[in-house]
Measured scan of single mutants.
Amino acid sequence: MAEAPPRRLGLGPPPGDAPRAELVALTAVQSEQGEAGGGGSPRRLGLLGSPLPPGAPLPGPGSGSGSACGQRSSAAHKRYRRLQNWVYNVLERPRGWAFVYHVFIFLLVFSCLVLSVLSTIQEHQELANECLLILEFVMIVVFGLEYIVRVWSAGCCCRYRGWQGRFRFARKPFCVIDFIVFVASVAVIAAGTQGNIFATSALRSMRFLQILRMVRMDRRGGTWKLLGSVVYAHSKELITAWYIGFLVLIFASFLVYLAEKDANSDFSSYADSLWWGTITLTTIGYGDKTPHTWLGRVLAAGFALLGISFFALPAGILGSGFALKVQEQHRQKHFEKRRMPAANLIQAAWRLYSTDMSRAYLTATWYYYDSILPSFRELALLFEHVQRARNGGLRPLEVRRAPVPDGAPSRYPPVATCHRPGSTSFCPGESSRMGIKDRIRMGSSQRRTGPSKQHLAPPTMPTSPSSEQVGEATSPTKVQKSWSFNDRTRFRASLRLKPRTSAEDAPSEEVA
């Protein structure tokens, strides 16, 4: 009796068929016929556990003709996506030579605008209408194809895939403007070719909807975003200037109206006075309405000098805001240009540092100066060695804690006790272990408590650290204090090793 083939788990290929790579489910599931010992083939499952149809090819690079078809379809799909992405970037994010197409579109729109203006002049109306009709045909074809291509290429973005995504893309403001202008152009052409009475009025009214094509030149909205950011950044200043200017306008108009309503027919109503105030304070000055009385002229002159300053403030605020924003954008561009080279330089330096163990090129690091100058660790070890030599091999803490019996001779020589300023008595072995921070803190506390006492003391002649007598400086308080830590004499004296002298005989010792 033939044995059933062993159940295979995992992703390994079956024996005897090495080139074939078959994806098997996580659990080997066989058909009921196979479990019962029949000759049925096992049921194939996909990666998600769903059964595959009987005629479906197995996924994998070596699955025969199905694999070749899959490779061809995958390559075609990649080319399709690449083309779609390229078209989308050309239309929505132009760079380099892609601006040539947008310059061509701008020339078409500008020519249409010029011809629309010439069509309103009686001398050039006939020729402009003929040229404009031909140009409209060209623009309908160009913009119609462009609109379709834009909607198709938007599928390269995830949020615009599918018919719902394309509809979302078509609802964008600039796409809506394109659609309105396209419909208006078709209506103008249809009305112009019919030759009816309505054609002339339709051409004159709907052609100027094509002015909206100038708005579509900035599809990404960079200028509007820049203007919005400047207004938002200086909103408080703008609101303040406009508010005060509006108050000056209504008060000036009302007072001039009261002064001129009886003697001047131009100011017969408050609305006429508001019109005069707006034209005057905005420095336009049509001259259609002028005050005639001396009181009205004085009020107009005073409020004009006051109001023009507030009406001119928004222009200066926006101008300075634009300058600052442009400078910030230039700085951001320079930062973006330098970020990648800086990151590459840091990575290269780290690779060199991690692979080169000698690091002989590091001549400006802490390790280099640590090898030249005595390190703080060596100074600490030197302090501890000196203290243990004086205390008979014991550390200062051990000397303080060691009990001394009554009447027993002390094995240590008597030492002079010292007192730290602002604290109780402490171990004499710690007097010379006072660090730089303690010395600086002690000097600052003395300056806070009594700076007036220092200038009363007789001035001391500054001497070099080499000429100081070591026996005289029994305490860190003898170090000359200065008002600034930048004094080199104080810094050098604080680094010197001060020996400890006994109370009975204080021989001067120098520590090399």
Rank of each mutant, 00 (worst) to 15 (best):
Lys289Arg: 03
Gly287Cys: 02
Leu107Trp: 04
Val298Gly: 15
Asp266Glu: 02
Gly221Val: 05
Ser309Cys: 11
Ala304Asp: 05
Ser269Pro: 05
Met214Arg: 02
Arg207Pro: 12
Lys333Gln: 00
Gly285Val: 11
Lys289Gln: 05
Asp262Val: 12
Tyr101Ser: 01
Gly34Val: 10
Gly277Trp: 12
Pro13Arg: 13
Asp218Asn: 00
Ser185Pro: 00
Pro173His: 05
Leu281Ser: 03
Ala263Pro: 11
Ala271Val: 06
Leu226Arg: 03
Leu274Val: 09
Leu299Pro: 06
Phe179Tyr: 01
Pro291Ala: 11
Gly296Val: 10
Lys337Asn: 02
Gly302Asp: 02
Ala202Glu: 15
Ala304Pro: 03
Val230Gly: 05
Asp288His: 02
Tyr147Ser: 10
Glu336Gly: 13
Asp178Val: 01
Ile197Asn: 07
Ser273Thr: 02
Leu238Arg: 15
Val248Gly: 03
Val183Glu: 06
Ile105Arg: 00
Ala170Asp: 00
Cys112Trp: 13
Leu324Pro: 15
Trp276Arg: 14
Leu345His: 14
Tyr88Ser: 13
Met206Lys: 12
Glu146Gly: 04
Asn264Ile: 12
Val256Asp: 08
Pro291Ser: 04
Ile284Phe: 08
Gly285Asp: 07
Val231Asp: 13
Gly155Arg: 02
Asp272Gly: 14
Phe251Val: 09
Asp218His: 00
Asn264Thr: 13
Leu118Pro: 13
Asp272Val: 13
Phe246Leu: 07
Arg216Pro: 11
Trp275Arg: 07
Trp276Leu: 03
His334Leu: 03
Ile279Met: 13
Phe311Cys: 15
Thr280Ala: 02
Leu247Gln: 15
Ser253Phe: 00
Trp275Cys: 03
Leu299Gln: 14
Ala252Pro: 10
Ile148Asn: 06
Tyr243Asn: 02
Thr240Asn: 02
Ala154Pro: 15
Gly316Ser: 04
Gly162Val: 02
Thr280Arg: 03
Thr293Ile: 15
Trp224Gly: 00
Ile244Ser: 02
Gly321Arg: 15
Ala304Val: 10
Phe335Val: 02
His292Pro: 09
Ser269Phe: 10
Leu238Pro: 15
Val230Met: 00
Thr293Pro: 02
Tyr160Asp: 13
Thr200Met: 05
Ile140Asn: 15
Ala342Ser: 07
Gly321Val: 12
Val231Gly: 00
Ala154Asp: 00
Lys261Met: 11
Gly296Arg: 09
Ile317Leu: 13
Gly316Asp: 14
Gly287Ser: 05
Ser269Tyr: 09
Glu123Lys: 06
Ala315Asp: 06
Met206Arg: 12
Glu336Asp: 01
Tyr286Asp: 14
Pro314Ala: 12
Phe104Ser: 13
Arg331Gly: 03
Gly319Cys: 14
Glu92Lys: 13
Trp152Leu: 10
Ala191Thr: 00
Phe303Ile: 04
Ser229Pro: 05
Gly222Ala: 03
Gly296Cys: 14
Glu260Gln: 00
Leu238Val: 01
Glu328Val: 14
Thr293Ala: 10
Gly192Cys: 04
Leu274Pro: 04
Gly321Ser: 14
Pro94Ala: 10
Tyr101Asp: 00
Tyr243Asp: 00
Pro291Thr: 02
Trp224Cys: 00
Phe246Tyr: 06
Leu226Gln: 15
Leu274Phe: 04
Leu226Pro: 11
Thr282Arg: 04
Tyr160Cys: 07
Arg207His: 15
Phe179Ile: 07
Leu345Pro: 11
Glu22Gly: 10
Gly162Arg: 12
Gly277Glu: 13
Lys325Gln: 15
Thr282Lys: 09
Leu305Ser: 15
Trp224Arg: 00
Gly165Ala: 04
Tyr257Cys: 02
Tyr286His: 00
Gly245Arg: 14
Ser111Arg: 13
Leu258Arg: 01
Phe254Ile: 07
Asn129Ser: 06
Ser185Trp: 01
Phe335Tyr: 02
Gly165Cys: 05
Gly287Val: 02
Gly307Cys: 08
Tyr80Asn: 11
Gln84Leu: 13
Asp288Glu: 14
Phe267Val: 07
Phe311Ile: 04
Glu92Val: 08
Ala252Asp: 07
Gly285Ser: 11
Arg95Leu: 10
Leu258Pro: 06
Val186Gly: 06
Phe303Tyr: 01
Val181Glu: 13
Ala323Asp: 15
Pro341Ala: 11
Gly49Ser: 15
Tyr286Ser: 04
Leu324Arg: 15
Leu318Gln: 10
Phe311Ser: 04
His334Pro: 12
Ile148Leu: 02
Leu306Gln: 12
Val298Asp: 01
Gly222Cys: 02
Leu318Arg: 11
Phe246Ile: 05
Arg297Thr: 05
Phe169Val: 08
Phe254Cys: 05
Ala170Pro: 05
Gly296Ser: 14
Arg220Pro: 00
Leu91Gln: 02
Gly287Asp: 08
Gly307Val: 10
Gly296Asp: 12
Ile250Asn: 03
Thr280Pro: 06
Lys333Asn: 06
Met1Arg: 15
Ala190Pro: 05
Ser320Cys: 10
Ser41Phe: 15
Trp276Ser: 09
Glu92Gly: 04
Thr278Ser: 10
Thr193Ile: 04
His234Tyr: 11
Leu212Pro: 00
Arg20Ser: 01
Ser235Ile: 03
Met1Lys: 04
Tyr243Phe: 00
Val151Ala: 10
Arg150Trp: 12
His234Gln: 11
Ala301Pro: 07
Asn264Ser: 14
Phe310Tyr: 12
Ala343Asp: 15
Leu306Arg: 09
His102Leu: 01
Asp288Val: 12
Met1Ile: 15
Pro291Arg: 01
Arg338Pro: 07
Arg331Leu: 09
Asp288Asn: 12
Leu281Trp: 05
Val176Asp: 02
Ile180Asn: 06
Leu255Gln: 07
Pro314Ser: 06
Asp288Gly: 04
Gly319Val: 15
Gly277Val: 03
Ala315Val: 08
Arg82Leu: 10
Gly165Val: 06
Gly64Arg: 04
Ser153Pro: 02
Gln327Pro: 09
Val103Leu: 01
Gly316Cys: 11
Ser253Tyr: 01
Ala342Gly: 08
His334Asp: 04
Glu146Lys: 11
Arg297Trp: 02
Tyr160His: 08
Phe246Cys: 03
Arg297Gly: 00
Ser153Phe: 14
Gly49Val: 01
Gly321Cys: 10
Lys337Met: 06
Pro94His: 04
Leu247Arg: 03
Tyr243Ser: 01
Asp218Ala: 02
Phe169Leu: 04
Ile279Phe: 13
Ser235Gly: 03
Gly228Asp: 00
Tyr160Asn: 06
Ser273Trp: 11
Thr280Ile: 11
Leu132Pro: 00
Arg166Pro: 02
Gln84Lys: 03
Ser309Thr: 14
Gln332Pro: 11
Ile308Met: 06
Ser269Ala: 03
Ser201Cys: 01
Asp288Ala: 13
Gly96Cys: 09
Val248Glu: 07
Ala271Asp: 01
Trp276Gly: 05
Asp218Val: 10
Trp86Arg: 02
Ala199Asp: 13
Asp266His: 05
Glu260Lys: 03
Arg331Trp: 01
Trp152Cys: 02
Leu9Arg: 05
Thr290Lys: 02
Val138Glu: 12
Arg43Ser: 15
Ile105Lys: 06
Gln327His: 12
Phe267Tyr: 06
Pro94Leu: 10
Ala271Pro: 00
Ala259Thr: 03
Gly285Arg: 02
Val109Gly: 03
Thr283Asn: 04
Leu318Pro: 14
His234Arg: 08
Pro341Ser: 10
Pro173Arg: 04
Tyr257Asn: 10
Ser253Pro: 01
Leu203Arg: 10
Val109Ala: 08
Thr290Ala: 07
Arg297Ser: 09
Pro291Leu: 05
Leu249His: 12
Ile189Val: 09
Phe254Val: 01
Leu313Gln: 05
Ile279Asn: 12
Val230Ala: 13
Asp266Ala: 05
Ala342Pro: 04
Met217Lys: 06
Glu260Asp: 05
Val230Leu: 07
His334Asn: 05
Ala323Val: 15
Asp262Ala: 04
His330Pro: 11
Ala252Val: 08
His334Gln: 10
Arg338Gly: 07
Ala259Pro: 14
Val231Ala: 01
Trp275Gly: 14
Arg204His: 04
Lys236Met: 00
Lys337Thr: 08
